[in-house]
Design a protein around this nucleic acid. Structure first.
Length: 947
RNA sequence: GGGCUCAUAGCUCAGCUGGUUAGAGCGUUGCGUUGACAUCGCAAAGGCCAGAGGUUCAAGUCCUCUUGGGCCCACCA
């Protein structure tokens, strides 16, 4: 007991208590009618993930909510898990293979997938371990992985259902193609970024009559002098795609080009004839008003191509190199081809000019490679029908975003939703449950040399099936093969809130383990009980990827929303406002912070910095605040533990209260505790975590430690003080527990069962065998009747007097060692009584050897200095050398007070104010004026006394 | 092009539905080893709340515009 170290050592305590909680199964929650459900599903981190500050913030918030609700008596379930993260994981494993000089193709699909699973076995739980370090109280027994067998069933089920509803289709479209990952990506996976590019103006020669203008086609003959109508200049940012041009489009209203419509051009470098077409889509203002049309390499041009029946000529291979349609440029990389093509055009005099041009283009969200709009056959989900209920639910407030502004972002995206490209040309993921009968289907993949495309791809001979079909249901052939593609990772993530609760197997896990003995009150299944989940805590980046899609999936497959609230926290940035990222090298590693300052310090600092919806700017020093606070809690507790007398009885506080036995100071601290607690409840209920953190911080540090503990030091062994200091600490620990789970447990356990016999105090470094845990103790209940504004006001006066004396001492340069006598003069008899009653504490805290409390301020000889704040506090000035300085300050203060009085008088002189402002406010202002005047007269009296 | 967001003390930020003398942490300056804590205590200095208009009895707070940061979305050849 008396060997409590002066410094808290988080390292040792944290692992010990985490193990304690986990071994006792305190994280698990079960469906049952006795409690209210509270459920959060974790945003599943990637299996490849390592804990960064974003995770730390995200999971701290969730853990606070879970621990808070657990203490409130809910069945609080936090479902953890990881995401298989298709492309990201495949990339990681491929990198590992590359070290062995292997490509995945060398292994083959099956062997490669085996390797990924191996990798997952070895490294996949890294982030889970790290979450435990943070203190996350997830129910680990329910951990899910999006590639689990059970989970995969949900994925297949959803695919089949959508397919049967006609909401999944296959088609050939321009999609976002990453030439490095060599897969299609959804629009969300190809975020736009600013690029510094050029706008190239290229001359396309006109065919005159039926004979081509041949200039520029041979290298020997240079361009001949040109008349205006001999070529059309088009502007492009991607000249390499010109090889696939099949038209040039102009606006039909454009007078400059009207007479060219329908005429033929020669496509330079490949010498193909292309037509000039007219379309309203063409912006006359941009470039030259004439646009080259490349239907196979640009989404806009694709539309034009379909509309005008143009040819679709692909000039690139999936790896971003030019194909056989690219004439001399075959096998060149797309960027190399651009350079060479520009050189060639320049040489032929066909490059009119080059203009710097800012543009933005899609980049692969996994490897940041510039996306190539690429024509290919992919699978899509029709999203419009799914969006309807998801829009309505948010509009009607059934699902609420915190902060509110994200509602608009969500609705805007949902209302303009595009079909979702879900097929990926990678190996790691859920393979499409689609099979083809060789016999039935002439299933021709697009070859690079296909110039014409069948636009419609009706699924004839395509079988979508939950299990691999033995035979073709149409022709009976057994020559069946499965689609090679896998599904977008997010196609499994969007099922997370219900797939983790056992869908589509509705039977509850609990039912299986503990069959309900009573038919009257059968245990609800997990999904019945916990779904819809309570709140989703996530980052803004994945609103479209994940949040919106989960809402759609919830309505589509369960018929209910997946969660009530969505809390969107800010992005973690460095102190310069840059997003923390590995590549920028500005990472602050949460694990390093935990090692150095402790998980509680990390959690507290993070949360106290997170105003709702604002980004968090971090530097390492920020965590010192959390560490210092943990140390403060530790030391205040240490002090209490050292002074707690085991002989006293831990009685029920309400008995004390009802007898009105408690001293003013004790009533005050309890009142302040409950007042703060009430605010904490309100803050947590509104997801204002920084407010909750700061309320508890300032209560504990500045009220409990700085005032309360200092004051009761006067009479520590008093049984009432013993009781209240114990109670206030114990309750504070419980209120702090969701924020700082480890240190609160450590101290709470050391407090043991004080006052009960026999007291149990665990030894340092050991875990007591049968102890309860603070994490399953009830959250303190706000005792309204204990909140006492009168007592708070009274104590304010006491604090004012002490502060005033200290202030004067400091100003007058009277050292703290010197005990001095002080006179306090005030008219109110009641207040005098109050100060009289508290004089012991006042004398101690202000270091006085004498405190005289008088009714009237009687002017004395020079030996007194004084200052007023509705009362006179008088300090003898004899032998003090700071007096001159003090006089100056006094004059300043008088001036300030006079101007404050003038300002108030001006306000009160306005008839509009008296007439329109609420009476309460007017009264308030009048009272203030009176007090100011009172203060002024006292200040003046002091000034006189000093003369 | 559309939308969002921020601008408050030297620094990083709070400030809920408009109503005391605008707060905190860090930093700065004094003083301090007082029975837990120097990862501490006491005190102090420091703000025309970005700028300009407007609404109101009353504006850091609401509205409009301007300036300057940040972010998101868009079929910006």
């Amino acid at each position: 007991m008396n060997e409590i170290p002066a410094r808290y050592n988080p390292k040792e305590a944290e692992d010990r208590w985490y193990q304690f909680w986990e071994e006792r199964g305190l994280f698990s929650a079960q469906a049952g009618p006795a409690k209210k459900p509270f459920c959060i599903v974790i945003p599943p981190p990637n299996v490849t993930g390592i804990l960064h500050m974003g995770h730390a913030l995200n999971n701290t918030i969730q853990d606070i909510l879970i621990r808070y609700h657990r203490m409130l008596g809910c069945a609080a379930l936090w479902i953890p898990g990881t995401d298989h993260a298709g492309i990201a994981t495949q990339n990681v494993v491929e990198k590992a293979l590359a070290k062995e000089k292997l490509r995945r193709q060398d292994l083959g699909r099956e062997k490669f997938i085996e390797r990924v699973w191996q990798w997952r076995e070895q490294y996949g739980s890294t982030i889970i371990k790290q979450l435990k370090k943070l203190g996350a109280s997830c129910d680990w027994s329910r951990a899910r992985f999006t590639m689990d067998e059970e989970y995969s069933k949900a994925v297949v089920e959803v695919f089949i259902r959508l397919f049967e509803l006609g909401l999944i289709y296959r088609g050939t479209y321009i999609i976002n193609w990453c030439p490095r990952c060599q897969t299609a990506l959804s629009d969300e996976e190809a975020p736009h970024r600013e690029l510094k590019g050029n706008l190239y103006y290229i001359k396309y020669p006109l065919v005159v009559g039926h004979v081509s203008c041949v200039f520029g086609l041979t290298k020997t003959r240079g361009p001949r002098p040109t008349a205006h109508d001999e070529y059309i200049v088009v502007a492009t940012t991607r000249p390499e795609t010109m090889l696939g041009d099949t038209a040039v489009a102009v606006n039909p209203k454009d007078k400059r080009y009207k007479h060219f419509i329908g005429r033929t051009l020669i496509l330079p470098l490949v010498n193909r004839e292309i037509k000039i077409i007219a379309d309203n889509m063409v912006d006359m203002e941009f470039g030259t008003g004439a646009v080259k049309v490349t239907p196979a390499h640009d989404p806009n041009d694709y539309g034009l191509g379909k509309k005008h029946g143009l040819e679709f000529i692909k000039v690139m291979r999936p790896d971003g190199r030019m194909n056989e349609n690219a004439a001399d440029y075959k096998d060149m990389d797309r960027f190399e081809a651009r350079e060479v093509i520009l050189e060639d055009l320049k040489e032929k005099g066909l490059l009119e000019k080059v203009q710097p041009h800012q543009l933005s283009a899609g980049h692969c969200y996994r490897c940041h490679t510039l996306i190539e709009p690429y024509l290919s056959k992919q699978w899509f989900v029709k999203m419009k029908p799914l969006a309807g209920p998801a829009i309505e639910a948010v509009k009607k407030g059934k699902i609420k975003f915190y902060p509110k502004r994200w509602t608009k972002v969500y609705l805007n995206w949902m209302e303009n939703i595009q079909d979702w490209c879900i097929s990926r040309q990678i190996w790691w993921g859920h393979r499409l449950p689609v099979y083809y009968c060789k016999n039935c289907i002439s299933h021709i993949d697009i070859k690079d040399n296909d110039k014409r495309l069948a636009i419609s791809d009706k699924p004839k001979g395509v079988i979508a099936s939950r299990t691999r079909p033995e035979k073709c249901p149409v022709c009976g052939s057994s020559d069946i093969y499965q689609d090679e593609d896998v599904l977008d990772t997010w196609f499994s993530s969007w099922l997370w809130p219900f797939a983790t609760l056992g869908w589509p197997n509705i039977g509850s896990r609990i039912d299986k383990i503990h069959p309900s003995p009573s038919t009257l009150h059968p245990s609800p299944s997990d999904i019945e009980y916990f779904y819809p989940t309570s709140v989703l805590v996530t980052a803004p980046e994945i609103i479209f990827f994940w949040v919106a899609r989960m809402i759609m999936a919830g309505f589509a497959f369960i018929g209910k929303k997946p969660f009530r609230d969505v809390y969107i926290h800010g992005t973690v940035r460095d102190i310069e406002g840059k997003k923390m990222s590995k590549s920028l090298g500005n990472i602050i590693d949460p694990l390093e912070i935990i090692a150095e300052y402790g998980a509680d310090a990390l959690r507290f600092s993070l949360v106290s910095l997170t105003a709702q919806g604002q980004d968090v700017y971090l530097s390492k020093e920020r965590f010192e605040q959390g560490r210092n606070f943990a140390n403060k809690i530790w030391n205040a507790s240490r002090f209490i533990l050292m002074n707690l007398d085991p002989g006293y009885k831990n009685e029920d506080l309400s008995v004390f209260f009802s007898k009105n036995k408690l001293s003013r100071i004790n009533r005050w601290i309890l009142s302040r505790f409950y007042a703060a607690l009430k605010e904490v409840n309100r803050s947590l209920g509104a997801y204002k975590f920084n407010e909750a953190a700061n309320l508890l911080y300032s209560f504990f540090w500045h009220e409990f430690c700085d005032w309360y503990l200092e004051m009761i030091k006067v009479d520590l062994k008093n049984s009432e003080n013993q009781l209240v200091m114990y109670k206030a600490l114990e309750k504070s620990l419980r209120a702090l527990h969701p924020l700082m789970p480890f240190i609160t447990e450590e101290i709470w356990q050391r407090l043991g069962s004080w006052g009960q016999s026999p007291p149990v105090f665990p030894q340092e470094g050991t875990v007591p065998p049968k102890l309860r845990s603070i994490m399953t103790e009830p959250w303190p209940h706000v005792q309204e009747q204990i909140i006492d504004k009168e007592v708070e006001k009274e104590m304010c006066l006491v604090f004012d007097v002490i502060t005033l004396v200290r202030n004067m001492r400091s100003e007058l340069g009277i050292p703290l060692q010197a005990d001095i006598p002080v006179r306090v003069c005030l008219a109110s008899r009641q207040k005098r009584g109050l100060l009289e009653a508290m004089s012991g504490q006042i004398k101690t805290l202000a270091k006085l050897n004498e405190l005289r409390i008088e009714e009237h301020y009687a002017r004395q000889e020079h030996e007194y200095a004084a200052i007023a704040l509705g009362l006179h506090v008088v300090i003898p000035l004899a032998g003090v050398n700071g007096a001159g300085q003090y006089k100056e300050k006094l004059t300043g203060r008088i001036k300030e007070t006079i101007s404050a009085i003038k300002a108030k008088e001006a306000v009160l002189a306005k008839t509009d104010f008296i007439r329109r402002a609420p009476a309460e406010i007017v009264e308030n202002e009048k009272a203030k004026l009176k007090e100011l005047k009172n203060t002024l007269s006292k200040l003046k009296a002091v000034e006189d006394a000093l003369k």
